[in-house]
Design a protein around this nucleic acid. Sequence first.
DNA 1: AATCTATTCAATTAAATAATTGAATAGATT
DNA 2: AATCTATTCAATTATTTAATTGAATAGATT
Lengths: 226, 226
Amino acid sequence: MKMNKREFKDKVYIELSTVAKAMANPVRLEIIDLLAQGPFSVEQIANYTEQSIANASQHLQHLKKAKLVQISRNGNFIYYSLASESVYNTWVSLRELGKVFNTEIAKVVHDFRKGQSKGMQAIDAATLATMLEKDEVVLLDVRPEEEYNRGHIHRALSIPVDHLGQSLKKIPHKKMLVAYCRGPFCVYADEAVAMLTRKGYHAVRLEEGFPEWALKGYPVDYTTSK
Amino acid sequence: MKMNKREFKDKVYIELSTVAKAMANPVRLEIIDLLAQGPFSVEQIANYTEQSIANASQHLQHLKKAKLVQISRNGNFIYYSLASESVYNTWVSLRELGKVFNTEIAKVVHDFRKGQSKGMQAIDAATLATMLEKDEVVLLDVRPEEEYNRGHIHRALSIPVDHLGQSLKKIPHKKMLVAYCRGPFCVYADEAVAMLTRKGYHAVRLEEGFPEWALKGYPVDYTTSK
DNA sequence: AATCTATTCAATTAAATAATTGAATAGATT
DNA sequence: AATCTATTCAATTATTTAATTGAATAGATT
């Protein structure tokens, strides 16, 4: 039987709202932000988001049902990843919407960074690209090394933030330091800049993360980990 | 007192989920899709979405609280519009996510169009642009005239779908007809193509709507309605 | 086959969301 | 000031959602 206009529109918007509902939860948004960095196991996701494994798993089932994530298996571990680039694109749109327009988010980010270090500064990708061309900065990737290996900004040194204390001697004083991590809401770079600043270095963070840098077409490298 | 990392992330993702929640409802998604076409009053929005005025207003309050819409006033009427282009961009990302990846939406669209007319075809914006350059088609804007006046595809004739019956003599037989309306989930173009096909015309619809065409940088016109 | 580990499932409880209905309100109009 | 129109608000009811807890399961490993 022929579907009428109202039935059609109702069905389409109900389906789309299912996708939007999958994203309408803070824990699931954090999971999507994390998976933008690559595949992670349930245990890792639970760890990074500070949820119970059961709760993380339930949220992952919700995302899977909405077809936003997909799984692969390695031994006992099940790895989750974003199902497609359009999931990432929608996450980025939503984040931009929140950043540009929800002043509360900007305020939270600003307050957090100010609490980390007075005069905390961030530069954007275009500025970094120019500085790298002029060889003016030392670039630090302060994510876990596994993520560095999956892909990193061209010429970045890998110094995970929790190893930063014991790695200071590797870092030249002469040039300005730029630290980057997973993205605007990841705080590894904030922590790194705070520590480096306390040790007398001139350090700032990159606003974007590796995925945004890559998406903008700037040069990236990969480490073959074999 | 200094905000810790977990507090920071929780606050940021909760704020962002507020935005996502505003979109996580089929009625509000339809409202956003409608407002992508320009400002509408509460009464118009209630009419087009087939909701009560009270319900439409409640959803609009929800969208307003999330800062996704803004208002202006004209006499007794309050007009709602999308608060920024990034609201529209997020809507488009979500819709693309749904179209590309949620096969149920594609099926609903296909089933609806098949119910309208066997052999129902749609072309995309790039195809239309080429055909217009070669002067191969007659382009019909089948939206309400008010929306045509706000902006339309270059060289489109305005023939609102509910006037199509009495406007057939205006339409040449010799060329292929392309009908367009508000976007992929608007059915004015489907209805127009069904009617034209029954009357012996060779007609197809444009997949995209006017906003997508404009966003892709293709030529547009405006009618000064004074 | 037995055991282990990571993960999922199910039930419960509490909180959040949404449509309806009628009342109230905000401006505009007279 | 009185009246009107469009819109918003508030209470109610039903539905949906989410965290917790403990049980169950799916594969891997031995």
